[in-house]
């Protein structure tokens, strides 16, 4: 059976332009946050959470709500299967944050495999999924990658992905939200996948 977010993947291709220009979760929450702060008289602070500036709070497409899932290099960029990518250029990385080739071997900037002091090739470090393995090991949860929504970031469609669990607490330490999770699960942390599709 096709995963629900798989349907969204397909829909995103057709709807990317509309999603990028319409009222979005980011812009909605950003405007709500701005209005609330403005109501309390914090005009200067309110300016900082205008939707256009919201990426400053977390990453593009996601404002300061649920935090990033644990990841090697600070931003939870993943490939379509949930494995970690280097946030700056989308190159696959292992769990130690090293660039790897197609077979998972650590490589240097020229693509040559890294070697140990004795000249032998270094073993492959683990490369496991951010939600299913990283989050589960760090927090002892049975988290799964479920809900997704889409934003336009850097001229391409970004899929924002919820890592969902039955925990009533999210990674921030406060109460978790239902978000785009289902079957009673709630959002524990978030990740993103840059589709490469123009928007």
């Amino acid at each position: 059976m096709r995963r629900p977010d798989g349907f969204l993947d397909g829909a995103a291709r057709a709807l990317s332009t509309r999603l990028a220009s319409g009222m979005t979760r980011r812009s909605f929450l950003g405007r709500m946050g701005g209005a609330m702060l403005a109501a309390t008289g914090g005009a200067a602070v309110a300016a900082a959470v205008r939707p256009e500036k919201s990426e400053a709070f977390h990453f593009c497409g996601h404002i300061w709500t649920t935090g990033s899932c644990p990841n090697p290099l600070g931003l939870p960029r993943i490939d379509k299967n949930g494995y970690p990518l280097r946030p700056s250029d989308g190159h696959p990385i292992d769990n130690l944050g090293r660039a790897v080739n197609g077979e998972g071997w650590a490589v240097d900037g020229s693509g040559n495999r890294l070697r140990a002091p004795d000249g032998e090739l270094l073993p492959r470090a683990p490369r496991t999924r951010i939600c299913e393995e990283w989050t589960n090991e760090h927090y002892g949860l049975h988290a799964v990658m479920e809900g997704a929504w889409y934003r336009c970031c850097g001229g391409q469609v970004r899929k924002l992905v919820d890592c969902c669990s039955h925990s009533k607490k999210r990674i921030n330490g406060d109460a978790s939200l239902t978000g785009y999770c289902f079957n009673g699960r709630r959002v524990f942390c978030v990740m993103y996948y840059d589709s490469g599709l123009k928007c």
Partner: peptide, 27 residues
Amino acid sequence: IGRHGSAVFVQNVTTNKRRAIKKTDVW
């Protein structure tokens, strides 16, 4: 060490009793 995790094992070579000192899916 494999792509899906790593572990350090210790085995008593007389009794063959083996245990994982540390096992992880991440590091």
